[in-house]
Design a protein around this nucleic acid. Sequence first.
DNA 1: GCAATATATGTCAGACTCTGCCACATGACA
DNA 2: TGTCATGTGGCAGAGTCTGACATATATTGC
Lengths: 201, 201
Amino acid sequence: MGLRERKKEKTRLALMDAALDLFLEQGYDSTTVDQIAGAVDVSPRTFFRYFTSKDHLVYWYHDQNEETMLETLASRPPGEPPFASMTHTLRALLQDMRDATPTDTERFLKVRRLMDATPQLAAHWIGRSVETERRLVEAIATRRGVDPDPLSHLIVTFALAAMRVGFECRPADQGGVQEMVSRIEETLRLVERSLRPGWDA
Amino acid sequence: MGLRERKKEKTRLALMDAALDLFLEQGYDSTTVDQIAGAVDVSPRTFFRYFTSKDHLVYWYHDQNEETMLETLASRPPGEPPFASMTHTLRALLQDMRDATPTDTERFLKVRRLMDATPQLAAHWIGRSVETERRLVEAIATRRGVDPDPLSHLIVTFALAAMRVGFECRPADQGGVQEMVSRIEETLRLVERSLRPGWDA
DNA sequence: GCAATATATGTCAGACTCTGCCACATGACA
DNA sequence: TGTCATGTGGCAGAGTCTGACATATATTGC
């Protein structure tokens, strides 16, 4: 990894950290790109070279997770029932979250707190997952050997529902990542129990 | 209804129609508020007095549907199983769509075509439904006599899944509202069949 | 090391969305 | 008809985001 790339990564993280801190401190809307760039000693123009928009910064983790899920799903054995592939994919993602470095976990929690404080960001976050869902549906349909149909769509939607519900519910606001992961895991089991055996065949 | 209110309604519809036509003709991003306002002979400033933002115009139907659903849900008999209340609510909404006037149907189809052509709008649309979902969850939880919990959330999510899936799938792009409604209805039945009897108790 | 090249950054001008403010016109109501 | 309430236009300005060009900094091959 060359010096150039290392510098870039460093700048990206610096921008993220500065932005998240400013957002949490004084609110998302009240924070300008100029402020963020200023805090990292970079021109505002440069900010937009790292993040396509002010909110793209917040969705960075979502984009990462999307990639992870698609990769995991592709690696599942071909004969596996489709909904089982989805639940395994989700559980792999949860494991990644458990294994993340403290620094990274810290950032993720900041993002989550930010979304609690800024409904529009939470809404956009969910909206973004539509595209993710579309790709997963395509992958599932391919695994099932059919064109994308309502059932493929439902297989993905039902699985992601656990993710969304567990993510949005917040019985204990101050809980860490472990707690959130447990809640998602629990919801996932609830989904599995609610479905008729063999419904996805 | 006074002259003033009639004029306002007329202006709002004129803005919507002009905007939708321009969006479909030359793209959402390439259309400016100045153009829309110009087409209706009002000042750009006035546009923002009717719609809080450029995209608010597109989400107008969503806001309407949200209100309808909340009202329908409130009118369901208290003893009804919660998921059945949700499916009835959805079916009432579908009936409203079937009963709409041709002019209104036309507008709705334009909105739908626009979202096919503009993924960011579709994403935002879904994101907006998070707030709707939150309110429905609250209503369902109240009906069940509990605080909002994962099961209440799932009851709503599973029902809305049919809506989303039926709305997003587009086997025949040129199909009318009737066809879309049928697709949603069909997906709703698929959801009902996939769930274990009594799962929402 | 040194040139040649590629890439990242800064600066500037400008378009577009959206808001606050004030003056003006038009509908509502006594 | 006169007064009041409300909708509208125009303007100034903040904030987001983009394109173009020049400059500084890595990378690569010699």
